[in-house]
Design a binder for these strands. Structure first.
Lengths: 144, 144
DNA sequence: CGTGAAATCATCCTTTCGGGTGAGTCTGAA
DNA sequence: TTCAGACTCACCCGAAAGGATGATTTCACG
């Protein structure tokens, strides 16, 4: 929200600024139009680069803060991936560095069950190893 | 490398393109210069945003993959833990979800060597599994 | 010139992971 | 009630990971 306002405002301001410059050109007309075009182009490329990096930075920042919040955001993400609660619990303990056996003990189920959940969440996350699963979960910001 | 070439090439191409347009303007002069300025500005803002996001994307990627940037900060941390460069490289690839075999291929060494490095860094990090190693490395902020 | 750390590779062995398959229970929705 | 999905567990098997030990080479440091 705030970002959009800033970006749009800045763009408009810059445009006005450039127009003013061009207006001024008619007074000081001693340089070629190509020169001014180059200036304008350069100026706006710089502006664009700046805006572009700002944009991406904000994007990741938002992702980070949202994951730092609570369960609700996670559940939405979970539904996007299709992970069930149990699968997510396994994934959490997995990311803590627990073995399947340790996860089984902590969840009061058998190792086989953990392996089933693991296999299912690997399918849903489209990964082959638990380390990949953890990484992908972090990238999807469903895990810290 | 490739990225820079592409970016610079694209910038130059766009500049030439705009200059051509302006040249053409002298033939079809029926629109105000403000209009053309707006077009140019808009065009280059879009280009800039694109380039900007590209740039930032690469930047983060570089930080993750290459050890060149993170070396300086890492080496201090590394000495605290006592990890050698090779062990750290293995740890990095490990955190990306690579298997020992894949790590071996990417480092041009045998799987046994990777396992040796892995065993050593497990000792130094005081962990038992690779998932724990990755987690601990993140907690020590020697890995993203 | 030795000495030690790092890097490399190996072999043997055990544990852990992961894939595949099947199957029973339970719950909530149609 | 029936049915889908989740959860549970089991067995088998191959692949990956990890532990232990030893050997060689390289390279910097004293």
């Amino acid at each position: 929200m705030k970002l959009k306002v800033i970006v749009y405002g800045l763009s408009l301001a810059s445009l006005v600024f450039v127009l003013k410059i061009l207006q001024y050109r008619y007074v000081v007309r001693d340089l070629s139009i190509e020169f001014y075009a180059g200036i304008v182009a350069l100026l706006f490329v710089v502006l664009g680069v700046w805006v572009g990096s700002r944009l991406t930075q904000r994007k990741t920042a938002v992702v980070q803060t949202s994951s730092a919040l609570s369960f609700k955001v996670d559940e939405e993400r979970l539904r996007q991936v299709g992970l069930s609660r149990r699968e997510f619990e396994v994934l959490e303990l997995m990311s803590m560095g627990n073995s399947n056996n340790e996860i089984a003990e902590k969840l009061f189920v058998s190792t086989n069950t953990v392996k089933s959940h693991a296999a299912n969440l690997f399918l849903k996350l489209d990964v082959k190893r638990r380390t990949q699963a953890v990484r992908k979960a972090q990238e999807l910001s469903i895990l810290p």
